[in-house]
Design a protein around this nucleic acid. Structure first.
Lengths: 162, 162
DNA sequence: GTCAGTGCAAATACTTTGCATGATA
DNA sequence: TATCATGCAAAGTATTTGCACTGAC
């Protein structure tokens, strides 16, 4: 889906919810779909502050990201390093995450077989499943390479409790 | 493994790390292995305050749970409802969690097949996997039943964004 | 014109930390 | 007796909220 099409969906959504389109909401929305990386509240705030345009306060970033999440436009991802980041959703298939414990890099992967097994487990236990979180953590390709070069790979593994 | 055996492991661990056994640490440790439910920092603090024994401050609970986690005696579980709870580890096999979004209840399940698939995905992407988090969320058996009785099941599902 | 949104600053919730005191090995 | 641990209160950190004002529809 292209950007303008997504944006008009957002406008429709706001209308349906009796919410208003404001310059602040527009800026946040557009930024969220313009970037192709995960972002925190703080990061979004910094981006908007650094660029020209109507000022956006932190409070508004918090409030707007909440609206976007409820509307299914973005999704929160807990990184396991004590932070929450967001990613835009529309036009992207469901996927899970792999977080590098050294550099924080987040990679995505999909596995339909795992999804199926999850549903089976939920059923077995009598749960009606509404969502799931699968997050692998470890050391990414690049960090492994440089750690090995420096001879610190094994030590880092141990440090991470593996 | 029985309780005293686990506790002597804790003592050995402390010795190895040049840490000291204190009445506070002992109380926290014993409580963590005595209960068979997940507990938050606050809950642990309240438990100890309500029982007789050497006083334990919140700061000490925080600090001691950190020691226990680093030592591999307990594990932190992010519930996805904005809280972190702990569970003791020794004597329990690895498992994943299913969290009820209505009552907060946490169930455990194991699936070796999922574990294998996770490792395969990590490999595929060049990640050295050191850990993972799989958390299903939904509505537990009991809550489903009572919601259906009250005719609020569908509405609740929608509320949860499913 | 009405109602919702915004910015600000204060409030909240949770966790960590500095420091003086006390306890363990 | 040399550390290490504890309790307390203060300081962080991240997020939410009340309120007066502004702006969208």
């Amino acid at each position: 889906m292209n950007e303008p099409a997504i944006e008009s969906r957002f406008e429709e959504y706001l209308k349906r919810q009796n919410l208003k389109m404001t310059p602040q909401r527009r800026r946040i929305f557009e930024k969220a779909f313009e970037v192709h990386e995960h972002f925190s509240v703080e990061r979004m705030y910094e981006w908007l502050k650094a660029e020209t345009g109507p000022a956006v306060s932190r409070a508004t970033v918090y409030r707007t990201l909440e609206v976007l999440e409820k509307g299914g436009f973005i999704e929160a991802v807990e990184t396991g390093r004590g932070e929450v980041v967001y990613e835009h959703v529309l036009g992207h298939e469901h996927h899970d995450h792999m977080v590098c414990r050294v550099c924080g890099r987040i990679e995505e992967f999909q596995d339909e077989e795992i999804e199926t097994l999850q549903r089976k487990n939920a059923e077995k236990i009598g749960f009606v499943m509404t969502g799931h979180l699968l997050r692998l953590s470890g050391i990414c390709c690049d960090c492994s390479a440089s750690l090995r070069e420096e001879g610190r790979f094994e030590a880092t593994l141990k440090e991470l409790g593996a």
